[in-house]
C-alpha cells in the first residue's frame, strides 16, 4: 500500500523542482543575455558598413555583411607589431612574476631568517597603496635606465608584485612540512628542495597567478600610455585607444578593432577558465 503512494509523490516532487529549475534558468538566461548583448552588438556591427551602423532605427543583421571594417582596422593600426609587443610584454611579465613571486613566497613561508616578519609586513603594506602612487617614480626610473619606448619598460613593474608574493606564500604554507623534511633527509639543498619538491606542489597557484598576471598585462592602458611617449613599442590597448581619435564615429571599424584586440584573451579564458576562477576565488583581487 505504501509503495504506490510513495511513487507518485516522488515524481511530483521532482517535477516541481524541475519546473523551479526552468524558472531559474529563465531568470539567469535573461541576465546572461544582458551581459552578452554588448558583445553580440559589437560582433554584428563589425560586419556592417559605416552607413548602416548609423541608421535609425538600427538594423539587426548586417544587410550586406562585409569585412571592410577589419580591413580598415588592419590598415590604420600596426596590428601585428602591436600584437607582438603585447604578447612579448605579457610573456616577460608572467615569467618574471612567477619566478620572483615563487622564490620570495617560498622564503617567506618556509625559511627562517632575521627580519622576516618585518620584510613581509613591508610587502603587505605595499598591497594597500593604490598603484597610481608609484607611477611617477616608476616612470622616472624607466626613463633614467633609458628604457622608455621599449618592451621591458612595459613589463618590468608588473613583474614585481606584493600580491604575487603573498599568493605564493599562502600556497607554500599549506603544504605539509614532511615533504621538505624528507627532501632534506635525502640530501637535497634548499634550492633543490624548492625546485623539485615544493614548486611542483603549488602548480595550481602558479597557474592562477599566471592567468591573472596575463589578464592585467594584456588589459593595461595607463602604464603603456606613460612609458611609450614616442609611440614605439606600443601594445594593442594603446593602438586601440588611439583608433578612437581617428575614427570617432566609424563604429564598424572601432568594433572590429575591439573584437580583434580582445579575442586572444577571451580565447585563453575559455580554455583556462578554471585557473581564472581559482585565481580570483583564492585571491579576491580585482584589476
Amino acid at each position: 500500500m505504501t509503495e504506490p503512494s510513495l511513487k507518485p509523490r516522488k515524481a511530483a516532487g521532482s517535477k516541481a523542482t524541475r519546473r523551479g529549475e526552468w524558472i531559474l534558468h529563465l531568470a539567469l538566461a535573461i541576465a546572461a543575455a544582458v551581459m552578452v548583448a554588448p558583445f553580440a552588438w559589437q560582433l554584428l556591427t563589425a560586419f556592417k558598413t559605416t552607413g548602416e551602423a548609423s541608421e535609425t532605427p538600427p538594423t539587426f543583421w548586417p544587410a550586406e555583411p562585409t569585412a571592410d571594417a577589419f580591413a580598415t582596422f588592419f590598415d590604420s593600426v600596426p596590428v601585428w607589431s602591436q600584437f607582438t609587443v603585447s604578447v612579448s610584454a605579457l610573456v616577460l611579465r608572467v615569467v618574471g612574476q612567477l619566478a620572483v613571486a615563487a622564490l620570495a613566497g617560498y622564503a617567506f613561508a618556509r625559511l627562517r631568517f632575521p627580519g622576516r616578519s618585518i620584510l613581509f609586513g613591508l610587502f603587505i603594506a605595499m598591497l594597500m597603496v593604490p598603484s597610481q602612487l608609484f607611477l611617477i617614480g616608476q616612470f622616472e626610473l624607466i626613463r633614467d635606465l633609458e628604457l622608455l619606448d621599449t618592451i621591458p619598460a612595459l613589463a618590468i613593474p608588473g613583474m614585481f608584485s606584493a600580491f604575487g608574493v603573498f599568493l605564493m606564500r599562502q600556497a607554500f604554507m599549506s603544504i605539509p612540512g614532511a615533504y621538505e623534511e624528507a627532501a632534506r633527509l635525502d640530501g637535497a639543498g634548499p634550492l633543490r628542495t624548492f625546485w623539485s619538491v615544493m614548486l611542483p606542489m603549488v602548480r595550481p597557484t602558479l597557474g592562477a597567478l599566471a592567468v591573472l598576471t596575463s589578464l592585467y598585462s594584456w588589459n593595461d592602458l595607463l602604464w603603456p600610455l606613460i612609458v611609450s611617449p614616442r609611440g614605439d613599442n606600443r601594445p594593442l590597448t594603446v593602438g586601440l585607444a588611439g583608433l578612437q581619435g581617428q575614427y570617432g564615429t566609424d563604429y564598424p571599424t572601432l568594433m572590429a578593432g575591439a573584437l580583434v584586440a580582445s579575442l586572444p584573451l577571451i580565447v585563453i579564458f575559455l580554455v583556462l577558465q578554471r585557473q581564472f576562477f581559482n585565481g580570483i576565488a583564492s585571491s579576491g583581487l580585482k584589476g
Binding site: 546572461a32 558583445f39 589578464l215 588589459n219 586601440l240 575591439a258 584586440a261 580582445s262 577558465q273 576562477f277
Partner: peptide, 12 residues
C-alpha cells in the same frame, strides 16, 4: 557568460 566582460579589454 557573466565573466566575459572581465576578460575583455576595458578599452574595447
Amino acid at each position: 557568460l557573466y565573466f566575459l566582460p572581465v576578460v575583455t579589454l576595458p578599452v574595447a
